[in-house]
């Protein structure tokens, strides 16, 4: 595989990870850039699990940057507009209203997730890392990964219940999984 091929394969996942962790498009873009520079400076072809390795570098750099900035995730108006444009092009008006409400709600919910939970969530759902790989990346036990993942889902569910969101209907509100 060439460097360009590697870049094309993982650039979106790395960017999304950076974006969801940093909540800032510019920072995400710069850090995504840095992740690949870092990767290419190393002997990347000898790495067995490239995907997990790259996601791990991305996550470490995100966490470092977050720590440095002591950043609480800031609301990015620009991103919301982009979301509106993206949905407007394919949905009917009625759907747009409903979808938009849900999107904004999700945006808000994701923003409220603490960094620790967000790290597990992005590695799991964007990076598609196994629980063991997440544990290795974050240097925490697998049990902690599981509990953080569960906590993240539970937190989001709780928030949705508070907001009495429409689309929660149909799911057993008091059930546990």
């Amino acid at each position: 595989m060439t460097e360009r091929e590697l870049f094309d394969l993982y650039n979106k996942d790395v960017y999304r990870t950076c974006y969801y962790m940093l909540r800032n498009a510019q920072d995400a873009e710069d850090l995504c850039h840095d992740v690949f520079v870092t990767v290419f400076r190393q002997d990347w072809q000898s790495i067995e699990h490239t995907r997990a390795w790259i996601m791990r570098i991305a996550m470490n750099q995100c966490l470092n940057l977050l720590k440095r900035k002591q950043a609480q995730l800031k609301k990015q108006h620009q991103v919301q507009i982009l979301h509106e444009q993206a949905t407007a092009s394919i949905k009917s008006v009625d759907t747009i209203v409903l979808e938009k409400a849900a999107e904004e709600e999700w945006e808000e919910l994701l923003k409220q997730l603490p960094d620790k939970l967000m790290a597990v969530v992005t590695l799991r759902y964007i990076g598609e890392l196994s629980l063991t790989e997440i544990a290795e990346t974050l240097n925490i036990p697998v049990g902690t990964v599981k509990s953080r993942l569960h906590k993240a889902l539970k937190t989001m569910r709780k928030k949705l219940e508070q907001n009495q969101s429409l689309w929660l209907k149909g799911e057993n509100q008091f059930g546990t999984h």
């Binding site: 979106k12 960017y15 873009e29 995504c32 991103v79 993206a86 949905t87 994701l110 759902y125 964007i126």
Partner: peptide, 11 residues
């Protein structure tokens, strides 16, 4: 939500 490429504005 996290994985859906359509919604994300990529650089």
């Amino acid at each position: 939500e996290l994985k859906n490429a359509d919604k994300m504005a990529y650089p």
